[in-house]
Each structure stands twice: as C-alpha cells, then as structure tokens.
Design a binder for these strands. Structure first.
Length: 748
DNA sequence: CTGGGTGCAGTTTTT
DNA sequence: CTGCACCCAG
C-alpha cells in the first residue's frame, strides 16, 4: 500500500467521524529522524501515533518487532494495542496482502514493562530470576533490611544526621502518631516515616541519575544518604529483588552491555530485527532515566518520535519533568548533534465545544507563570476548535453553593434531571473530577452521600475504602486470631491507630463467627495447635496458606463467589504475598511469610515476628489504607457516575465534566524541594530544574492539573464551588490578569 | 462581606 | 502539627 492509499483508507475508517488535518498527516507520514509532536488536548494525539505505527508497518514494511511504542500506564498501553488491532483488521479487509503482517509483535507496553520483558527475553545476566517489587514491597524491604531503620539503636544511630538533612521527606504528617516529626527535636522519626522518606530519596537518586560519588564527597547528610542508598541497593540485588526505579537502571546497564546487541541491532530476521523505531506517548511525564533510555534505544536509528502536551505534565512527584518535553530539540542537538528536528503542533481540538476550548486555553494563558521561558514549548499556538460539537447553549457554567453538602446535593439533583430529560442516557456520560477521591468530609464524602441518598450509582475505586469492607475485616480478624490469639503482641504495639484497626477486624470476625461454628472452631483449634507446638520450630505453614485456609469456611467460602468481594480479597492476598516474600534480615534463606514458634514454651508464634508484622505491614495499612482493584482494560463501567482523580482522567473524555475543589492548593512540596536540592548532583547537563523558584513550580503544577480537568469536557463543563472557595478564589479560578472563571461562565 | 474562634482531617502513582 | 472549612459576630 502506498502512502496516499493508506491515508485515504484510514480517513474512511467508519465511526471516526473526521478527516485528518495537515499536521496529523505530517506526523503519520514523517520519514526518518527525530519527530517532536506537541499535542494539545483532544487533538487526535493517540490516533496519530497509532496511525504512524501502522504507516511504518503497511507503507514502509518495517518489521513489527522493530517498533517500540510506549506509554505511561498499562490501561493506555492496552488501549493502544486494541486500536492497532482494530485498524489493522480494517486495513486487511481492504488489502488482503497485509494479512502477513504480524502486527501484534509491535512492542506496545509501559516503559517498565518493556524493561522487564526485554531483559528476560534476552536473558540479561544482570537480571536473572529477579523479583520486581511494587512500592509496598519496596518499603517492607527497606524497613526490614536498612541499617538506618534497625531496631538496634547502636546500628541506626549511625544515620542520625540523615533525617534532619532532608526534612522535606521526613517532616510529613504521620497518621500513626497524628503528628509531624520535628527535625530540630534531636530524635529520629519513627521507622514508618523513615521508610517512607527513604523510598522517595532512593527512587529519586536512581531516576534523576544522580552522581553518588559527588554526593558522597559533599559529606554530612549527603554522605550518610549515599551510604544508606548503597546498602539498600546491594541488599536488594543480593536478594534478587528489583524496584521500579532500578528495573530501569538495570535496563540501561543491559543496553550498554554486549548482551543487548541482538535486541538493539538484530540479526536480520523478523524474529530479531533490532530496534528501528521508538515512539513515546505522554512524553511530558518522562523522568531523567527514562529520557536516557529512550535516547539509547534510538541511538542507532535516530528514529525517536515523542508525543505529549507540556501543559498536561502531572507527575513531578514521581520524578517526571516537563523539561524532557520542552527541551526535546535541545536534547537531540546535544546528544546526537542533529541541528534541526521536525516538530509538529497538533493544536486543533476535536473533543470539545468551542466555548470550552476558549475557556481552558484562556485559563492556561491567564497565568504569568506559564509564559516564563521553559514553562511551555516555545511558539505553541492557541488551541482552535475543530469538533462538530456546537450549539447555542452556554457550555461552561459555575454553581456557587453554600457548602460541600449543598454543592453535592445540587450535583445529584442535576444528574437526576439530565437523565430524566434524556439529555444523558447513562450516568457514565458524566464524571466528577477531584484531586483526591477519598471518602472524607472535604473530598468525595459529601458527593458519595448525596448520590446514595438519590439512589444514583457511582464508581469510585480509589476511595481508600477497601479495609472498611466486611469480608476484609473478617478475614484479617481471623488471621490475627490464629497468629496472635491473645493479642499479646498487638498490645505491645505503641501506635493506637494500629491497635484500633486490629481490634475492629477482630470484632468483626467475632460478630460473624458467632453464627458460623465451623469458622469459629477452625480458628480456635488452629490457634491452639500452634500454641502446643514445641519452642523454636517451624509452624509448617506459610502466612499466606493460613489466609487461604480461612476461605474454605462459610461465610467466606460463599463470599469468594461474589466477584466484587473476591476481587477485594485478591487485593489483600497480594499485600500478604508481598510481605511473605520479603527476605528475613536475620536469615535471608527464609522469607517473612515463614512462621516459626517462640523460643519460650507454649508462646505460639515468635513474639518478635508478630511485633514486626504489626509494625511494618499493619503499620503501612493503618496509615495509608488500600484501594480497590481496578479493571485492567476499562477505565470505568457503564451505568454509574465515575468519581475520579484528575490523574485518573488523563487521556479520557466525557460529555459532561464536573470539577470540584477549585481552591485546592495541595501539591507535593517534598518533590519540588527534592528536585531543587538534588539538581546540583544531576549527571544530565540539560537539567533545568533550577530555572524556576519553588513557588513558580507549585503554581505551574496546580495550573496544569486544573487544565487537565477542564479539558476532559466535550459538551459541557460545570464548575462546582462552595462559598469558602469563591469568596477567596484559588488557582482553579484563573490567573492574575483579567481572566477569571466568573467572567467566563454563566451561573447555574 | 470579612475576621476570629473552633473543629476536623491528613495527596497524586508507575509492574 | 498545620491547613482548611465552617460558623457566627460585626
């Protein structure tokens, strides 16, 4: 198929509804060399990158496995894969000869997935039989293995100058003590806070590609930090463990080693064609180590295509830096000596009513912080309207209510009205966007209450409510009654928050077990049999096996047939699995899931083990809670109103968007400060993280967050504000020029 | 509409 | 411990 036929074919894809614009065609038909696509919201960014991929396959006859296509989340990766399959099947129906293209061999994945899978596929010797740790497991590993969190104070005191050196990660609110550690107190923070802060610092050392030798040479708390980091990294690798940051570092090692030559350069077969094209979606959220990986992957071909929107960068708190996107051309010049690269602005919006586009484009431009050099890509044109959506109704409105309850009531009434008047046909055509969707008084709580009162179904998987569910409380209560039957270890825990949540679980178990003799007898006899075991002996079962055994008894055995309950039980199962797989620091041949009895007679499971379980795992659960498991493909189900974080909503669109919390000024100060603090040790010469002041960065992050929220809307955008917000308008109401929400919306 | 006192609640996320 | 929301007085 030639390029013209290809373009004609994809423009005729049924259901897409609009033709390709010239800039989209440039993206799709671009030949070799770097390609920099700055794409505004709703500009057909994802389709453009997918079509470019198909063009490489269909027109250029590039070998599928030589194309790497990465994006930010697994859901987005699945979505790209689905679109590629659908469009390819459509093209095959037009031209049978395309049938031989094995399009599912394109490497569509998140970057983490790509790193992990390719190192395994090519059997990289530096990554054999590694267990990839999620953030919970990483923290459990740190608390168990870092000398700095040791219970032996003669060991941990060697790190006493570390904590006050980085107050922004350690002086944070601690739910277990309901207080904030004071860096001037002369005492270290508690182990949970140490661990949480250390994981942030360790991850950033890796992701920011810091020069640890220079940090060490700086002395003081920098030197101590490097000692702690290197101890962590060595123990991690010695135990065949790898965290998300290090899987990327390992991959970089792989790419720089001889062992990657078959992957990078291939052997001329379609099985191993080498890397010919690298396409990156959501590039604005890339961090420094990821940038280095992408440039390394494309070093040979120079075919690096990055797509993103600098205005939608949301992930500074995990090391993402918009600089990678804003300075992409400079990076190509510096690293590859390419004087000029092809850049394309996709600035025609096919998503929203023109009035909504005017609103959020004006919103973005109303902040002087966004016009400072380096904040946005130079020469970015205003968004223009290209959608068929129009109409004489006012598309942006604000409701000014008395307080949260009144606003939530208005929201529920409006949904009822919309469905009643058939302005919507399904509740999932509307979305409520918030910074945090936790069920609490100042967040999603009032909205969840109001919707329940109106019998309107909603979907809010990130309300941190999993541990409140009956089946979870019962099963964890049962587990505690087996491993700590008289609560002796629990009573020794000094944090009331941990003891209280455990008592709640035990109480819930007792309530349910009262009517279920088999479950009750099983737990009692199991606990007694452990008590009767000899001292210092293996209990013979793993922590996780006890958990599974409980599922054999009613009502738990009935509950696991309920898909919702069973999914939630699965989440807890994963957490216990994570704990069970942490190597025991005293004997790394055993994992923490290995149960053994006390050295004293008839004391049951080792008192030390039980205390550790309460402090480390239950401490983590008590302070942070757990979210529900989400579907791997669907972002939200039909029939219910999605209540989403703005982060969740990135890349999605909804006919009607409601945004609440316009004065929310919550940003991750620790990340902003850490970024500035670490900048001087960065090996990346293109790093411009010192360009803005802390205040400017905070403002920019907030503006971008509201911009993402506002730009999700297709037909109508409704802002919800309570009195305390609109009497002292925050960042969500616009910048300091003449532009404000009040002048640009109608009141409803 | 504004200021002071009181009471509640405590961020976003990648396999 | 701090920041925000809310209430009530002026």
């Amino acid at each position: 198929m030639n390029l013209d036929d290809f373009i004609n074919a994809i423009e005729a894809i049924p259901g897409r509804g609009f033709r390709l614009d010239n800039n989209q065609k440039i993206v799709i038909s671009h030949g070799d060399g770097p390609l920099w696509v700055i794409a505004g919201p709703g500009s057909g960014k994802t389709d453009s990158i997918v079509f470019r991929c198909l063009k490489l396959l269909v027109v250029d006859k590039v070998s599928p496995a030589s194309i790497i296509l990465t994006t930010f989340t697994e859901k987005a990766a699945n979505n790209l894969q689905t679109r590629i399959s659908q469009y390819m099947q459509y093209l095959i129906a037009i031209d049978k000869s395309l049938e031989t293209i094995v399009y599912n061999r394109i490497r569509v994945d998140t970057l983490h997935g790509l790193c992990n899978d390719r190192m395994q596929e090519f059997r990289f010797t530096g990554y054999q039989n590694y267990r990839l740790l999620d953030d919970i497991e990483q923290r459990l590993f740190i608390i168990e293995h870092s000398s700095s969190t040791s219970l032996d104070s003669t060991v941990s005191q060697n790190y006493d100058d570390l904590w006050p050196g980085f107050p922004y990660v350690f002086a944070i609110f601690d739910p277990l003590t309901t207080s904030i550690w004071n860096p001037n107190s002369g005492r270290p923070p508690n182990r949970n806070i140490k661990t949480k802060g250390l994981s942030k610092l360790f991850n950033r050392i890796v992701e920011d590609r810091l020069d640890t030798n220079a940090m060490y040479a700086e002395g003081g708390s920098w030197e101590t930090l490097v000692k702690a980091y290197e101890e962590y990294r060595n123990k991690l690798f010695d135990n065949y463990r790898c965290d998300f940051a290090h899987v990327q570092l390992k991959f970089l090692d792989f790419l720089k080693s001889q062992q990657s030559s078959l992957f990078l350069y291939g052997d001329g077969t379609d099985q191993y064609p080498g890397v010919k094209h690298v396409l990156v979606d959501e590039y604005q959220d890339t961090n420094q180590i990821q940038e280095e990986i992408y440039f390394k992957l494309a070093e040979n071909s120079k075919n690096l295509c990055v797509v993103g929107d600098d205005d939608q960068a949301l992930y500074r708190f995990r090391g993402g830096t918009v600089d990678c996107m804003v300075n992409f051309e400079n990076s190509c010049q510096q690293k590859w000596k390419i004087p000029e690269i092809t850049s394309v602005f996709l600035s025609t919006n096919y998503r929203s009513n023109p009035g909504i586009i005017t609103f959020y484009d004006g919103y973005m431009r109303s902040f002087q912080e966004m016009s400072l050099p380096g904040a946005r890509v130079r020469g970015k044109p205003p968004l223009t309207a290209g959608s068929a959506i129009n109409g004489s109704y006012p598309p942006v409105a604000i409701h000014r209510g008395k307080n949260a309850d009144e606003v939530a009531e208005f929201f529920a009434n409006m949904l009822e009205y919309l469905l009643d008047k058939q302005l919507i046909h399904d509740y999932s055509e509307c979305v409520l966007l918030l910074h945090s969707t936790k069920r609490s008084k100042y967040k999603a709580g009032p909205f969840m209450d109001a919707l329940e009162n109106h019998n309107i179904p909603y979907y809010n998987p990130r309300s941190k409510g999993l541990l409140e569910q009956e089946e979870i409380k019962v099963i964890l209560g049962g587990l505690l009654k087996i491993i700590d039957p008289s609560s002796t270890a629990q009573r020794a825990v000094k944090f009331p928050a941990i003891r209280e949540i455990c008592d709640e679980w035990r109480g819930e178990f007792d309530r349910v077990a009262a009517n279920n003799k088999d479950l009750r007898d099983y737990v009692t006899s199991y606990a007694n049999s452990i008590l009767r075991m000899g001292p210092s002996t293996s209990v013979g079962v793993n922590l996780l096996e006890i958990f599974y055994d409980l599922l054999n008894f009613p009502p738990l055995s009935d509950w696991i047939d309920d898909p919702e309950r069973s999914t939630r039980i699965g989440v807890v199962c994963n957490v216990l699995d994570a704990y069970s797989n942490v190597p025991n620091s005293k004997n790394t041949k055993n994992m923490l899931g290995f149960l053994y009895t006390s050295s004293n007679v008839n004391q049951g499971i080792s008192f030390t083990w039980r205390k550790n379980f309460y402090y480390s795992l239950l401490g983590l659960l008590a302070s942070e809670g757990l979210n529900e498991a989400e579907d791997e493909i669907e972002n939200f189900p039909r029939g219910r109103v999605p209540i989403m974080t703005i982060h969740q909503s990135k890349g999605l669109e909804f006919p009607l968007v409601f945004v609440y919390g316009l004065s929310s000024a919550i940003v991750d100060m620790a990340s902003v400060q850490m970024e500035s603090d670490f900048a001087k040790f960065s090996r990346n010469s293109n790093n411009s993280s010192t360009r803005f002041t802390t205040e400017q960065k905070v403002k920019q992050d907030l503006v971008r967050r509201f911009f993402v929220a506002y730009s999700r809307a297709q037909y109508a955008l409704i802002l919800l504000a309570k009195r305390t917000e609109y009497t002292r308008p925050g960042v969500g109401f616009g910048g300091d020029s003449n532009w404000t929400v009040f002048g640009n919306t109608i009141e409803i």
